[in-house]
């Protein structure tokens, strides 16, 4: 439409006269489009659904969980049964992932490994969450010198090399599943404490805002609409990313002989056993545990990244 280009005239004959009547304002306002506003969580969920990699990760993790729970039931072989006549058999219809040097079924052991990895990861994340919320919550809530002191302590722990500390603690309290989780928790919670403290400080600011100017908005609504999304997002992401690092730590410790001890099956233990056979061609003994470690960590990492993108309103494009 090149209307602008026209010669200026104070009358436009092509426009009918009857259009020159005042407009019905009520009609206009009712027509103004109300954009559908999704709630924060729904909106985030939609964004997560769109992230194919994150969804692939989520599906893998669901499948892995099912495998950890039901896999050993599906398999006719038990974890620890040794069949010295059936050592180092390659994958077949009888032994899906082959057997190891003691004739144990690698598939069943991989399923048990999944149990241990998921258990360690989730427990570590939960313990970090609990300690982090309590510690960070107190620091943020009390503020002042207490906060200062508590955070100085966190800084020191934060500066220590995580795995070195875990190794030392493991040396002292001895190997085993419980001790791994314990050792991981000793320094693992500091990241969470920092985040929670930051969020609590934010909440305090909200309270201040609320007290100073009440716009008639309900407190519960503000908490639901602004506070929870903003504070829960980073915490959820942190938990998702704690899990793979705990799983790595368990595998690492088991691999250097400090974690789960044979004959129990953990991916780290299996990888360590498999390593010695690298030259003899029993590839399945190394392949399956390492594949599962990598896939699991990959899945948690992409899911964590996806959650971070989905939950951070600032990243909305």
């Amino acid at each position: 439409m090149e209307l602008r280009k026209q010669e200026t005239r104070n009358i436009s004959p092509e426009i009918p006269d009857e259009w020159f009547v005042p407009i019905n304002k009520n009609k206009l306002e009712s027509e103004s489009v109300v954009r559908p506003s999704l709630s924060y969580w729904k909106d985030s969920w939609h964004r997560l659904l769109k992230n194919k990699l994150a969804m692939a990760g989520l599906f893998f993790l669901i499948a892995l969980t099912l495998m950890a729970i039901f896999g050993p039931m599906l398999s006719p072989h038990s974890v620890e049964t040794q069949r010295l006549t059936e050592q180092n058999l390659p994958p077949s219809s009888k032994y899906w992932f082959g057997t190891d040097d003691l004739g144990r079924d690698v598939f069943t052991r991989t399923c048990y490994g999944a149990r241990i990895s998921l258990f360690v990861g989730i427990m570590a994340a939960l313990i970090d969450f609990v300690i982090g919320v309590v510690y960070g919550g107190i620091a943020g809530y009390k503020g002042g010198r207490i906060d200062n002191f508590m955070m100085r302590f966190v800084e020191i722990l934060y500066g220590l090399p995580y795995l070195l500390v875990v190794i030392l603690v493991m040396v002292v309290i001895g190997p085993g599943l419980t001790t791994i989780i314990l050792a991981l928790s000793i320094t693992g919670w500091v990241g969470m404490a920092r985040i929670v403290r930051g969020q609590v400080l934010q909440i305090k600011n909200y309270e201040f805002v609320l007290a100073s100017k009440t716009f008639g908005t309900k407190t519960s609504r503000i908490i639901r609409k602004n506070l929870l999304p903003n504070t829960m997002g980073p915490i959820i992401v942190q938990m998702t990313l704690t899990i793979p690092s705990a799983i790595f730590a368990e595998a690492f410790l088991s691999f250097i002989g400090l974690g789960i001890q044979a004959p129990h099956a953990s991916w780290g233990v299996m990888a360590n056993d498999g390593l010695s056979t690298i030259l003899s061609g029993y590839w399945w003994r190394l392949f399956f545990p390492t594949l599962f470690i990598s896939l699991t960590m990959f899945a948690f990492n992409v899911l964590g990244d996806g959650l971070q993108d989905a939950l951070d309103p600032k990243l909305r494009r």
């Binding site: 209307l3 602008r4 026209q6 200026t8 005239r9 009857e18 259009w19 009547v21 005042p22 407009i23």
Partner: peptide, 10 residues
């Protein structure tokens, strides 16, 4: 006016 909604003014 009604015209305002229908046509962009010259």
């Amino acid at each position: 006016m009604e015209v305002c909604e229908k046509v962009y003014p010259f």
